[in-house]
């Protein structure tokens, strides 16, 4: 059964189409990644799904509840961890959780038990009396994860859950997410622009300029690149590109003095290729494709070095109510 369903969902801010007629489904129990550069429409989509924004057109359902017409049921079915912290920093960890419990009407006897269980899980039980403004970024994120799960949601939305955290803390957060998923039978919907994080997902939707440009498992997406990725530098790159195109019938791309092309079975291709190539090579390597390559192939630009232009900034701003 599809636990999240989007149908032709659009959101425009003035002239800007932040989300442009997107449709897809997420299955129950799945860990689903929403991948794209900043300003691609990820946060706007999440904000619509969690009832913070109204779509301009189209519809969306969570557990069969319409996100516009049945807000309350939707709100009870989902847990949220936003990009920016949403804790009351002047209250203690415990007070933040208790507020959440009251707001969701969690009965007293389950409340205290559940609070302890989750605080222990995210390793904050000892710090429960501590004010949140004394917490580190990683601790705040963990507390938000605990809070987001307090009311037993079936779907957990994570908007860039590890943004701004150091690599060690990121790994730690991911350990928690994986443990939770097993324990709580959750469907996880996450957005990220870290390619390595997207690898944890069972399926990935790639979004660029408000549109879904690909949706599949990470493996299949990478297969779509067309085999292994070969990167090389030659003494004369221009001539190398010409030779690759003419003699090997490949479509190489020259970017920042590096030539990339993809080829099935790169391991066996390489020795033969080096022996016959007429231009002197400075370096050459072969690797399995990453999601970066997928993104590059689909959009023609890399996910990381995309300039955050005015358009994107506007979108990012509008996406945050």
């Amino acid at each position: 059964m599809a636990i999240i369903k989007l149908e032709e969902l659009s959101k425009t801010f003035g002239q800007i189409k932040a989300v442009d007629r997107i449709s897809f489904e997420v299955e129950q129990g799945e860990i689903f990644g929403f991948l794209g550069p900043n300003g691609a429409g990820k946060t706007t989509t999440i904000n619509i799904l969690c009832t913070l924004l109204r779509p301009t057109s189209g519809r969306a359902w969570i557990k069969g509840y319409d996100v516009q017409a049945q807000r309350s049921q939707v709100q009870r079915s989902i847990g949220l961890i936003f990009q920016d912290p949403t804790l009351d920093e002047y209250l203690t960890a415990e007070q933040n959780l208790r507020f959440h419990a009251y707001a969701y009407g969690i009965p007293r006897d389950t409340r205290e038990k559940r609070m302890r269980e989750l605080l222990e899980l995210v390793e904050l039980w000892d710090r429960r009396k501590g004010k949140v403004n004394t917490f580190s970024g990683g601790m705040k994120r963990r507390l938000e994860i605990a809070r987001g799960l307090l009311h037993h949601p079936q779907v957990l939305f994570l908007d860039e859950p590890t943004l701004g955290l150091d690599p060690q803390t990121r790994r730690h957060i991911w350990d928690h997410i994986n443990t939770l998923r097993k324990q709580e039978d959750l469907t996880i919907f996450l957005t990220t622009h870290y390619m390595d994080e997207a690898e944890y997902c069972e399926r990935i939707a790639i979004i660029d300029y408000g549109q879904i440009i690909a949706l599949d498992t990470p493996e299949k997406l990478k297969d779509g690149v067309g085999g292994d990725v070969v990167t090389l530098e030659a003494e004369d790159n221009e001539a190398a590109v010409r030779e690759l195109e003419q003699k090997h019938n490949l479509s190489p791309e020259l970017q920042d003095g590096v030539i990339t092309f993809s080829i099935p079975n790169g391991d066996t291709f390489l020795p033969k290729f080096i022996r016959n190539f007429s231009i002197r090579l400075l370096s050459i390597s072969v690797r399995r494709p990453t999601l970066d390559d997928v993104f590059l192939k689909l959009t023609g630009h890399a996910i990381r070095d995309q300039e955050v232009g005015f358009r994107e900034q506007m979108r990012a701003m509008m996406g945050h109510p």
Binding site: L80, A103, Y104
Partner: peptide, 13 residues
């Protein structure tokens, strides 16, 4: 400004 409003707005209140 500090984000807590989101926590309030997404709660079933």
């Amino acid at each position: 400004e500090f984000g807590f409003l989101k926590e309030v707005l997404v709660a079933p209140l």
